[in-house]
Every structure is written in structure tokens, then in C-alpha cells.
Design a protein around this nucleic acid. Sequence first.
RNA 1: GGUGGGUUGCGCCGAAUGGUAAGGCACCAGUCUUGAAAACUGGGGCUCCGCAAGGGGCUUGCAGGUUCGAGUCCUGCACCCACCGCCA
Length: 419
Amino acid sequence: MLDIKFIRENPDLIKEAARKKHVDFDVNELLSLDARHREILNLVEKLRSEQNKLSEAIPTKAPAEKEKLVLELRQLKEHIKEKEEGLRHAAAHFDESMLRVPNIPDVAVPEGLSDADNQEIRKWGDLPTFPFTPKDHITLLESKDLVDFSRGSKISGFRGYFLKNAGALLCFALWQFTLESLVKKGFTPIIAPSKVRRDPLKGCGFIPQHEEEVYKLGEDEYLSGTAEVPVTSYFMDEVLNEKDLPKKFIAFSPCFRREAGSYGKDVKGLIRVHEFFKLEQVILCEGNHETSVRFHEELTKNSEEIVQALGLPYRVVVNCGGDLGLGQVKKYDIEVWMPSQEKYRETHSASYFHDFQTRRLNIRYRGHDNELRFVHSLNNTAVATPRLIACLVENYQEADGSIRVPEVLQKYVGLSVIK
RNA sequence: GGUGGGUUGCGCCGAAUGGUAAGGCACCAGUCUUGAAAACUGGGGCUCCGCAAGGGGCUUGCAGGUUCGAGUCCUGCACCCACCGCCA
């Protein structure tokens, strides 16, 4: 959500943001809803003012006069009720429109419609060369009994899976290795709830835009697709102290995604599943652009270091306008090489939002000048399993079908090779 | 699932026979001071109108209702505390 005052003063920036993000949004419509709302608001407030004034006078009046005044006020009340109905209507329309305003992308965000238009900004690592035809992760994992898809779907449904044996151990190893790396960097480890209320989802920008991708359990009960939601919202409706910023979290949570609209994509294997696990970096920092940019680069670097330690070749892309979420200002994806597909696949996603999320979540801090401001929010994947396991086994496969274990994970897995 | 108690402004505490949200602590600014402390004065959330000075509306967990008027009365909900039941 943006500041309506900012929108009134810069409608052209909003128009341009909608164009670049390929979002259907009419800023002129919002501005007329805004004007209409304020017009009715002024009228209602004037009537309320009169009501308050007369009402306050009642206790001082003599009985006969009092009765007359009460009658008068009863009429006024009816009149106000009528107008308030219109105000509610106008406010609802305005609010609905406000939730659809796109945040303004950074000037460095390239033009483009989809992830196909994202721009590579750097590469790391040599692509593996195999003196044999590399197998895909499904074949590799199933042949070693590291994953069970058929019982997975029998028990869990479409895209269900069990991770077994060294497959399960690899998962724990990745979590532990990643967690230790980030705790060492000063991040606060936190295990976050996946079951969340509607407000945090709305605050983070997942609702209403992506409502169909979120599992709904009940009236005010949803399953979050990422720890970004509970952890960014951790301080919802609170006022922080400037000297306590930044807040840096490394958050673990199970993640649930309906993957609606992605049928036909990655239907087999561990790339796209309904239930997975993620360690997510979340930062809340003081509200200025330079600080956001600095931490955005830092979050990206942290994850690159993890992928590098795992020895996986990857590239970093800057996402184009059409591939940005409504609230995102800029986003980098880290994409790891998948030998079987001969392409890079997204494993990490780092974005910053300025105060788009924290304005909705109402997370402020008191600065040294005693003024209240909204903090800025950012996040990036640290590790997502089992997707990264799919990348890992494909890159570390041998001719005989065995899988080497990356050196940094060996002490957690207790193996150097999965035979 | 059940019963009882609770939720007051940006933090902490806390008052208000149905009559229009006291007060204290902490914080910030100013005065004073070599500086600091103390003391004193002022300030505080959201929003609308206004160039401004200023004026208005909203805000007692949330949403409704009764009333000329609700922190206070009624209904529903959320959360916290205690206990009962069920269960890992």
C-alpha cells in the first residue's frame, strides 16, 4: 500500500509503475474514488460536529427545552445515518482500489512481461560436464530410495512425496548448515507458524491478489506459502525503537502452496510441490531507500555464499517489471543449474518493498527526532528444500548412479557418497 | 468443547453514578545551566479542511446494537490469565 497523499501528488508515477509491472490499474479511477470519499466524509463530519455540539448541551437544559432538543437530535441522527451509509460505500470502494495500487519499481528494473525477460547480471561456477548422459533428479532419487512419489501421492495427494534415507538426511543437513551460516552473521533464528490469519497475508500483499494460491483452512485461518508472512508481520501494530533496528531473522517454516494455475508445469519431481520447507531471511530496517538497497544486496550475497559453499553453479538475474509482485521494488532471483533440463532454475528470490508491506501491517519506529515512520521490509530465501536437493543430486551424480555429498554437508549427513 | 476473570492513546501503570477519556512513570522538545541533572512549560495516534494560523471528525481489543449521548448497557468475535474436560 502506498500513501494516498503521495499518489495524489504523483499519479504519473503510479501510471508508469502499472505499465512497467503489466498490472491493470487505473489511477484516475482511484483519484476520483478518493475525491468522492472525501466529499462525503466532509459532509458527514460536519453533521457529526453539529450533533456533538447539540448533544453536549443537553445536560445543561431545562426539562421542557431538553425534550425539544432530543426530538431534534433524533431527526438529525436519521439524516446522519443515511449519509453514513453512503460514506461506508465510498470508503469500501476506495479501500478496495488502494489495495490494488502497485508499488513503484526501481529504475534499474528491466522492461519485460515474464521471467523469460529477466536479465542475467552474473554467473558463478563451471557447469558440470558428464562423460555420460546425466539422469534427472527423479530417476536418481528413486533409484536410491531417497524419495517415494507413488506413496506420496497415495497418502498426500497430487505432488505428494516422502523423503527417505539419505534424502531426508540431506534435508536436515541443508537446514542445519544454512541456519548456522546465518546465525553466525547475526541473524536471529526463529521458527515461524505456517498457520496464519488473514491480516498478515493481506499485509504482505498475498491477499487479495494471490488468494487462489493460498490454502484456506477456515474463516480466519490460512496456510502460508512462506515464512515471509509470519515473520514480516511479527511486529504488526507495534512501534519499534530506532536503536533496535535492523531486525534480522532467519526463519524456518513449512510452506504450503496450491500452485493454482501452474498445472502442467513441473508436474513430476521435487521442483514444484504443494508442501515444502524453507529457511527465509527477513529484515526490517529503518525507512530509507539507501538502507533497503544495502540490505537487499547483503541478503543476496548471503544466499550466494550458501550456494557457493555447496558448489552449485548458478546465476543471478534481476527480475523484469512483469515478474515483480505488486509490492516489490526490485527483485533478484538466484537460479541454480539443472543438468537434466540444461537450464537454470530459480532457487532463491530476494526482494525489497520499501514501506509497502509495513504500511499495511502498521509497523512503525520512532526515530531520533521522535517522529513515527514506517520501517522497510526485505526478504530472501536462504534455502528451500526439497527443491535444492533436486539441484544438488543432479549436479553431484556419478556415472554409476551414486551421488556425492557436498563437503560442507558431509558432517551432517555422515556420508561422503550416497551409493 | 466448558466456566470465571481480563484487554483504556506510540511504551508501562491507571481513573472515570450512561454526560462526552483524569493522573502518574518513561520518552521528546523548549526554558534554565559551562555541561548534565533537577525544576518548570509544552508535546504525543489516525484522518479531513486550510498557504498558514487554526478548526473539525475518529480512536478505550474488534464488529454490531440500544440511546440525544456508550470505556460504562446488550449481542457476536478475537486474544490473554486461571481452572475443568478431551488429547499428543
